[in-house]
């Protein structure tokens, strides 16, 4: 009897110890390896993160059609892609918004926007809204820079001046990429920016 009690106690502590080693289900932090995802793009092709990413990494951005801050950065994202895709860091854009909350961010509207802007990178829709919460993304546009090991290296703003590209002082994403390429840790690894809150689907009922 005493032995049984001891065994069950041991078993319970073992379970506790095991649980403490389980991967954290919280949002990704800097240094975390991210899971793969697969989402449909405006050309009706499915794109998986792991297959799409470049030799050195990927510039993942949660962005959308309608947010004025996202619009301010459209051309700069195209520029980032054109500069860095050949260096192994292409852009991958994901629209996290629920189109019921924001019709201008529907899949069809994304196709229209893509036709106007001719994005040189895939523009995917997080239809089930399961990807952006893993990243803890809250606004558009918001950058998540991954290295070749799919490890999160930098998150936040693209640069420090949304309204006036000609007055940008610090290009956070470009600087972070250059740091990674030089074998260094980006500094800063996190920045904040004003953006539009992601439109989350309302619970039914």
């Amino acid at each position: 009897m005493k032995n049984l009690k001891f065994t069950s106690l041991l078993a319970m502590s073992l379970v506790l110890v095991l649980f403490s080693f389980m991967p954290d289900k919280g949002v990704y932090e800097i240094g975390d390896k991210v899971e793969d995802f697969k989402l449909k793009g405006v050309d009706d092709q499915w794109v998986s993160l792991s297959e799409y990413m470049g030799e050195e990494g990927v510039i993942l951005v949660f962005t959308c059609n309608t947010c004025p801050y996202a619009q301010l950065y459209e051309d700069r994202l195209i520029e980032l892609h054109n500069t860095f895709s050949s260096q192994g860091f292409p852009v991958l854009a994901v629209n996290p918004n629920d189109p019921n909350m924001k019709p201008g961010d529907s899949f069809d509207a994304m196709k229209d926007r893509n036709a106007e802007k001719n994005f040189p990178y895939p523009y995917l829709m997080d239809t089930e809204q399961k990807v952006f919460p893993q990243y803890g993304a809250t606004r558009t546009p918001e950058i998540f820079l991954l290295d070749k090991n799919m490890t999160l290296q930098y998150t936040g703003a693209i640069d420090d001046n949304p309204q006036d590209p000609s007055s940008v002082g610090t290009e956070y994403v470009a600087d972070a990429i250059n740091a990674i390429k030089a074998g260094k840790t980006p500094d800063p690894t996190k920045t904040k920016a004003i953006g539009c809150g992601i439109k989350v689907k309302k619970e039914q009922g």
Partner: peptide, 20 residues
């Protein structure tokens, strides 16, 4: 105030910068 990274935390550290 263009460089939001410099002042968002001064409003509140819990704020990510998303509106509202």
């Amino acid at each position: 105030a263009p460089n939001a990274n410099e002042w968002i935390d001064k409003v509140d550290e819990r704020w990510t910068g998303a509106l509202p």
